[in-house]
Write a protein that binds this DNA or RNA. Structure first.
Length: 947
DNA sequence: TGTTTCACATTTTTT
DNA sequence: ATGTGAAACA
C-alpha cells in the first residue's frame, strides 16, 4: 500500500462504521490498511474502547500485523492494545473456554470439564494416533457396530468426517443431535434431484448421451457390489439419458443405523478427548459455540459493539455463526474476496461471502429458533467494494481475470460470461505498465526456469520498482517461483542447488525428501555397516550413471576423494557435526539445510540415538513425508519458492508460476467430490458389510453411493481461484512455465507459449562434484541392466510412495544377515524378533541378502533385471524365497509379485531339480503368503514399460 | 463422421 | 477416481 492517505472508496469504508457491511476487497487493494484505519476510527469515538471492538483474522501473524499497524495510527499504544480482541476464531474460542468454558461440555451431555490445562492438538499426525487409540477402545466396547468398523477402510476417514461435521455446526448430544444438526445429515432430495436432472440432460440436440450417462459408463469398474445391485445396463438405460427414476432409487436409503454409529463415535470421541485433556481446532469452536448458544447471560455480557472479520472468504459455517453470536449490534463488517477462497479443505465455505445476504438471514433464523440470540436486524446489507489495486500493473490485473474463466480440462464446459459478471474489475494505481507476461514450456522445466531466472536477473528490460520508487534491474530476491504442489518446489530447489543458483523454500516442506537430507543419509549409511545403500545415494548425487554406480560398488573402487572424505567424517563426534561437514563439502547452505541440521540435532539432543537409529529415523521421516517449516529470513538475496497456498497475502515483483502441467495443476477432479458426505446428499456409507451374500462375510461397495457421487458435477472453481491467487501475487512481471505435458490452463490463458531448449552455459558447473572425482569405469561387459524400481528410490526407501507397503530399514536386514551367519546378535525390536522366529523355524541351508539378476531378451537386446532377495532357504528337494515386508496394502501386491517373480526365475535357473516357492513374510503379524510368479513373458512386458 | 467404449496413466493444499 | 486419446461402432 503506497499512499498514506486513503483513496475515496477506502475513506468511505473507514468512515462508515455503523451498520452491516459486506466488503468485496480484491487482491492488493489495501485491505489491511483500510481495516486498521477503520478500527482506529471506531475506537476514536467517545465511549468506545478497544475491548468493545472484535477484529478477527485467520492467522496469528495477521492478527499481530493488524495490532502493530493500529498502534501506528490510533491514539492507543501497544500496551493498551495488548489484550484487545484482535485475534483468530481459534484463539478467541480458546480464551473463551479458558475463562468460562469449564462446564460447557455438559450441554452436550458430557461430564468431563474443560480446564486451563486442556491442551490444543495442532499436529494432525498426533491427533490421528490418538484417534486410533480411541477407536480401538471404542470397537472393543461396541461390538454391535461391527459391520461399520469392518466397512471402514481408513480410521482417518472417520476422524475427517467428525471434523467436517464440527466445522458445519453438527454436534452430538448424549442421545441425539444438538439443535437442528440432524437435518444436515439427511440430505435434501429436491436439491439432489435438481443436480441429477441437470447432469442427465442429453447433449448436441439429443444426439449425444448425457454427462451422467457417460460418467456411469464406469459403474462397477474396480468395484464389488452385492449381488442384488443393478447391472450397468439397468443403471444406464438404453437411450441417451439415464432412467429418471434412478434419482429416487439411489437417494432413498435408511440412514438410521449409520447416523447412530457416527453419533456414538463422535460423542464418545469428544468424551475421550476431554478425558485425555485435549481439544482439536474444530472442537475448540464447537464448545465455544455451544457455550455462547446456551449461556444467554454470558453471551449478552460478552457481545461486542463492533465486529470486523478479515479474509471472510476463509470462514467456515460455524465461524459465521460465531460471528453472529458475538455481535451485540448490527455493526458488523466482513471483508474478503471470493476469488481468493482456496481453503475449502480447511472447511472454508466460499458461499459465506458469495451468498452473504441469504446466509446471514438463514443462520440468524436458525440461531433464533427457540430464543432470540441475534437481536439486531440483518438487513440491509451495505455492499462496498475496493477496486483500486496498489500492487500490480493493469496488464497483470487484466490477465488475472482470465484465470477465473480458464478451462481446467480440455472438455470442461463453463459459463465464462456468468463468472465474469461476478468479478469486480480492479484498476491499477500505477500508470506504468511495461509488464512482461510470458509462458514457456520445456522438456527440462527445472533447467528452463533456472535459465529464465538467469535471463531476468540484472536485466533492465525486466525493471522493477525499488523502495524509493525508482526503477532498477531485478535481483534474485525479487523473484518468486510459485507451484501447486510441494513436490515440484522441493525438486526445483535441488536443481537450483546443483547449479549454484540462490533459491530458498518458504513454508512447510518435507525437508527429509530433499537432496540435502538424502546426502546426510547416504554418508551416515556409509559410516554405518550399510555402506552399499549409502554409496548408491552418494554416487548418484555425484552424477554417476546407474551402471557406473553398480560397477564402482561391485569393484569397491570408490573415488579416492570420497574415501578420504569418509575418513574425515569418521573423526567427527556428533551427528550434527557429520551433517554440517557434509553440507559444507557439498556447498549446501541455506534454510533447508539448516532445518535438516536442526532436526537432526534436536532428535539427538532429546534422545540418545545410535547411528543406526538415526538412519532409521531419517528413513521414516522420508517415508511419512512430515513437513517442517522453513524460513529463509529477510535480507537474503535468493529466489523464493513457495506453494500457492503458502503465498497468500504476499506479493513479489516477478512471479514465475511453475509446474503448469497436466495432472499436477489443476489437481485431478478438483475439489468437487469432497462434499460427498453431507449437503445436498446427506450422510452416506461408501462401503457396506454383509454376512448374507455368498454366505461369506465381506465388504462391498455401496452401489447407491457410487452413483450418487457420479451425479455431482466436477468442480474446478477452487483450482481456478488458486490460479488467480498465483497470478495476482505479481507486481510487475509474470512467467508461466510447463514441462513436456502442459495443462489446459496454459492453453486457455491469453499468452503465447514458447517451447524452449534451456541454455545453461551461463552457469559454471565448477561445483559439479562428479568432475572432482575420477574413477576408471570400464565398459560394462554383458547386458545392459535395469532395476525394477528406480535405483535411487530403492536405496532410500521402497515404501516412499504411500500405499506401497514398507520395505525394512537396513537394520532388520543387517540383523537377519548376521544372525544367519551365526554372529551373536540380539533382536531389539518386534520386527527383528519376528524375523528371528522365522529363521529359527527353518532347517537346512539359509542365506540372507542375495543379489538376484535375471537376464531377459527384450526387443532383441539382452537386459538384466534384478534386486536383493531377503532370504533364501534351501533344503534337499526345495528352495524357498522369502521377502520381508511390514504391512500389506492392496496396491503393493502387484509390485511384490513382480519382485518375487524375478527372484523365482533366478532361483529356478539355479536349482532346476528342486521345487521353488516364493513368499512374502509380513512381520507385523508373522504371516507368510505365497506368490504366484509371473512368467518370463509377463516380466518382459514390465521391463518394456519401465524403460 | 460423430458417438461410445476401452485402455491407460496419473493422483494436493495446511491455519 | 478421473481425464485423455485411440479404437470400435453406428
Amino acid at each position: 500500500m503506497s499512499g498514506v492517505d486513503p483513496n475515496p472508496e477506502q475513506r468511505e469504508l473507514i468512515e462508515a462504521i455503523d451498520g452491516l457491511y459486506l466488503v468485496d476487497a480484491g487482491a492488493g487493494t489495501g485491505k489491511t490498511f483500510t481495516v486498521t484505519r477503520r478500527y482506529a476510527n471506531i475506537v476514536a469515538q467517545d465511549g468506545v474502547d478497544p475491548e468493545d471492538v472484535l477484529l478477527v483474522t485467520f492467522t496469528n501473524n495477521a492478527a499481530e500485523e493488524m495490532r502493530e499497524r493500529i498502534v501506528r495510527h490510533s491514539e492507543y499504544g501497544m500496551r493498551e492494545l495488548a489484550n484487545a480482541p484482535i485475534q483468530t476464531f481459534h484463539s478467541l474460542s480458546h480464551d473463551l473456554l479458558d475463562e468460562y468454558g469449564h462446564d460447557a461440555p455438559t450441554s452436550l451431555g458430557i461430564d468431563e470439564t474443560i480446564t486451563g490445562s486442556t491442551r490444543i492438538i495442532e499436529d494432525n499426525i498426533i491427533e490421528q494416533a490418538l484417534f486410533r487409540e480411541f477407536l480401538g477402545q471404542f470397537i472393543d466396547n461396541h461390538p454391535r457396530f461391527e459391520e461399520f468398523f469392518t466397512a471402514l477402510s481408513e480410521t482417518s476417514e472417520l476422524l475427517d468426517l467428525i471434523k467436517e461435521l464440527s466445522a458445519k455446526g453438527v454436534f452430538p448430544t448424549a442421545d441425539g443431535w444438538y439443535r437442528d444438526g440432524e437435518s444436515h445429515l439427511d440430505g435434501d432430495f429436491e436439491a439432489f434431484e435438481t443436480l441429477f436432472t441437470d447432469r442427465n440432460e442429453s447433449r448436441n440436440g439429443g444426439s449425444k448421451q448425457s454427462k451422467l450417462r457417460k460418467k456411469l459408463y464406469q459403474y462397477g469398474e474396480d468395484k464389488t457390489y452385492l449381488p442384488e445391485a443393478p447391472t450397468k445396463w439397468d443403471i444406464r438405460g438404453d437411450g441417451k439419458q439415464v432412467p429418471t427414476d434412478l434419482a429416487e432409487r439411489v437417494f432413498e436409503e435408511d440412514r438410521t443405523a449409520l447416523k447412530r454409529f457416527v453419533h456414538d463415535v463422535y460423542h464418545a470421541y469428544l468424551e475421550f478427548a476431554l478425558r485425555r485433556n485435549y481439544l482439536n481446532f474444530g472442537f475448540l469452536q464447537l464448545f465455544a459455540f455451544v457455550l455462547l448458544c446456551e449461556d444467554h447471560a454470558l453471551r449478552e455480557r460478552l457481545e461486542y459493539e463492533y465486529v470486523m472479520v478479515d479474509e471472510f472468504q476463509d470462514s467456515s459455517e460455524i465461524q459465521f455463526k460465531l460471528t453472529l453470536l458475538l455481535a451485540g449490534t448490527n455493526n458488523i463488517c466482513v471483508v474478503g474476496d471470493w476469488k481468493q477462497s482456496i481453503y475449502s479443505f480447511q472447511y472454508a465455505d466460499v458461499d459465506n461471502i458469495r451468498e452473504f445476504d441469504d446466509r446471514i438471514g438463514q443462520f440468524t433464523a436458525e440461531l433464533n429458533q427457540d430464543t432470540d440470540r441475534v437481536t439486531f436486524p440483518t438487513t440491509p446489507v451495505n455492499d462496498k467494494q475496493l477496486t483500486r489495486n496498489y500492487r500490480s500493473t493493469q496488464s497483470i490485473l487484466d490477465f488475472s481475470t482470465h484465470a477465473l474463466t480458464a478451462r481446467a480440462t480440455k472438455n470442461e464446459s463453463l459459463d465464462a460470461e456468468a463468472i465474469s459478471e461476478q468479478i469486480t474489475p480492479l484498476t491499477a494505481d500505477t500508470d506504468r505498465d511495461d509488464s512482461y507476461i510470458e509462458a514457456l514450456t520445456s522438456e527440462d522445466e527445472h533447467e528452463a526456469i533456472l535459465a529464465k531466472i538467469d535471463a531476468i536477473v540484472d536485466n533492465d528490460a525486466y525493471a522493477v520498482e525499488g523502495d524509493d520508487g525508482t526503477y532498477r534491474a531485478p535481483e534474485y530476491g525479487d523473484i518468486a517461483v510459485l507451484t501447486r504442489t510441494r513436490d515440484f518446489g522441493r525438486d526445483l530447489l535441488d536443481t537450483a542447488s546443483d547449479f549454484g543458483l540462490p533459491m530458498a523454500y518458504e513454508g512447510g516442506i518435507e525437508v527429509f525428501r530433499t537432496d540435502a537430507a538424502k546426502l546426510v543419509l547416504g554418508w551416515l549409511r556409509i559410516l554405518e555397516r550399510d555402506a552399499e545403500r549409502g554409496w548408491v545415494l552418494v554416487l548418484e548425487e555425484a552424477g554417476y550413471t546407474i551402471d557406473e554406480v553398480k560397477a564402482i560398488i561391485e569393484r569397491e573402487a570408490y573415488p579416492d576423494e570420497m574415501v578420504a572424505f569418509r575418513e574425515d567424517l569418521r573423526d567427527l563426534e556428533t551427528f550434527g557435526g557429520v551433517a554440517r561437514r557434509v553440507f559444507e563439502q557439498y556447498g549446501r547452505s541455506g534454510p533447508t539445510a539448516d532445518v535438516v541440521l536442526d532436526t537432526i540435532q534436536s532428535v539427538h539432543g532429546t534422545t540418545t540415538f545410535t547411528r543406526g537409529e538415526l538412519i532409521r529415523f531419517i528413513e521414516e521421516a522420508i517415508a511419512d513425508g512430515g513437513t517442517h517449516d522453513v524460513d529463509a529470513g529477510a535480507g537474503t538475496n535468493a529466489v523464493t519458492v513457495q506453494t500457492i497456498h503458502a503465498t497468500k497475502g504476499l506479493e513479489y515483483p516477478i512471479v514465475i508460476l511453475a509446474n503448469m502441467n497436466a495432472n499436477k495443476f489443476p489437481s485431478s477432479g478438483g475439489n468437487g467430490s469432497d462434499i460427498a458426505y453431507t449437503d445436498p446428499i446427506g450422510l452416506r456409507q461408501r462401503k457396506v458389510y454383509s454376512v448374507e451374500a455368498h454366505g461369506v462375510p465381506h465388504v462391498y461397495d455401496s452401489w447407491k453411493t457410487d452413483v450418487l457421487n457420479r451425479c455431482l458435477p466436477q468442480n474446478y472453481e477452487e483450482e481456478r481461484r488458486l490460479l488467480y491467487v498465483a497470478v495476482t501475487r505479481a507486481e510487475s512481471h509474470l512467467v508461466l512455465t510447463g514441462g513436456a505435458d502442459p495443462n489446459s490452463f496454459l492453453d486457455a490463458l491469453p499468452v503465447a507459449v514458447e517451447d524452449v531448449d534451456p541454455d545453461l552455459s551461463a552457469f559454471n558447473p565448477e561445483d559439479d562434484e562428479h568432475s572432482t572425482y575420477t574413477v576408471d569405469i570400464p565398459e560394462p561387459d554383458g547386458p545392459t541392466s535395469y532395476s525394477p524400481h528406480t535405483f535411487i528410490d530403492d536405496a532410500v526407501f521402497e515404501g516412499n510412495t504411500g500405499g506401497r507397503g514398507m520395505e525394512f530399514g537396513s537394520d532388520v536386514h543387517e540383523f537377519a544377515e548376521r544372525y544367519v551367519l551365526g554372529e551373536a546378535v540380539e533382536p531389539n525390536n518386534p520386527d527383528k524378533e519376528h524375523v528371528k522366529a522365522l529363521l529359527d523355524s527353518l532347517d537346512g541351508e539359509t542365506r540372507a541378502e542375495i543379489d538376484a539378476f535375471l537376464p531377459l531378451t527384450v526387443d532383441g537386446e539382452e537386459v538384466t533385471i534384478g534386486g536383493i532377495i531377503d532370504l533364501l532357504h534351501v533344503t534337499a528337494d526345495r528352495v524357498e524365497i522369502i521377502d520381508y515386508k511390514t504391512d500389506l496394502t492392496t496396491h503393493a501386491e502387484d509390485e511384490y509379485r513382480k519382485q518375487l517373480s524375478i527372484y523365482y526365475h533366478v532361483v529356478a535357473d539355479q536349482y532346476p531339480d528342486r521345487s521353488i516357492t516364493a513368499s512374502i513374510f509380513y512381520t507385523d503379524d508373522s504371516t507368510r503368503y505365497n506368490i504366484d510368479p509371473l512368467d518370463k513373458g509377463a516380466l518382459r512386458e514390465l521391463v518394456l514399460q519401465s524403460v
